[in-house]
């Protein structure tokens, strides 16, 4: 079965793509929604413009649709993007990186249902510490590109997900109930390398925006 990956450039959609490939599925394309709304409920926003470089590194075509990020309009734009992927790449199903968010997962499920295609959520209900451990064991290089909760601040931007990160985030989970994999929207990530990449991505430059406990890093890839 040929699948489209709903792709934000972060750890979850990259790991979901890896599982699809590992289980023998063909990846027809990546599908990315670029939201102009930094507060989008549906879509990851920091460094989303660098997804094209990830697609190049994976040698997988990408469908990009821009949205203003207004609540119901962004769902219409997502449906439009999936339709383009069906027409252009003949995909028969979508893979998402949804872990806990019923808001996200159920909306994507409904769109797939109306388009008569399969919907796969291979990270669904996965233990968040297990997910971080799986990323490290499978040699994913993941950095933090956004933080949105106390006590996370700009010093977290650019931090790699490694065993030290897991130790730190466990402590924050204990003390401040920060979700270890950022499922509550506490942080966002970007993947620089994975088993699906043919080359590692290098950051050419970056710029940080924000204040206090809300920061985003926009990166440019070489």
């Amino acid at each position: 079965m040929k699948l489209g990956i709903l792709f934000s450039g972060g750890k979850d959609s990259n790991y979901a793509a890896y599982l699809a490939k590992k289980e023998g599925y063909s990846i027809g394309c990546l599908i990315s929604i670029i939201s102009e709304n930094n507060e989008s409920f549906m879509f990851h926003t920091p460094s989303i413009s660098a997804v094209e470089k990830q697609a190049e590194a994976m040698k997988i075509p990408i469908v990009i649709v821009k949205t203003k990020g207004e609540k119901e309009k962004e769902l219409r734009d997502l449906k439009k993007a999936i339709k383009i992927a069906i027409d252009r790449y003949k995909i028969e199903g979508i893979v998402t990186g949804a872990v806990e968010s019923v808001y996200q997962a159920s909306r994507i499920q409904k769109i797939c249902n109306t388009l008569n295609i399969e919907c796969f959520n291979p990270l669904w209900q996965k233990n968040q510490l297990e997910l971080l451990g799986d990323l490290i064991r499978n040699k994913f290089e993941v950095i933090i590109v956004g933080v949105f909760a106390y006590p996370l601040d700009s010093s977290w931007l650019g931090k790699k997900i490694d065993y030290n990160f897991i130790d730190e985030i466990k402590k924050l989970n204990h003390k401040y109930r920060i979700d270890p994999a950022g499922e509550g929207g506490e942080f966002e990530t970007f993947v620089l390398n994975s088993p699906l990449f043919n080359k590692k991505l290098e950051i050419k430059e970056y710029k940080d925006y924000g204040e206090k406990n809300s920061w985003r890093r926009e990166i440019k890839i070489e």
Binding site: E23, F120, N121, Q125, K126
Partner: peptide
């Protein structure tokens, strides 16, 4: 039937 569905429908029960 689809192998990728194992992660969504079986593994969460195994984890519990």
């Amino acid at each position: 039937k689809e192998k990728l569905h194992y992660y969504e429908f079986v593994k969460p029960i195994e984890d519990i």
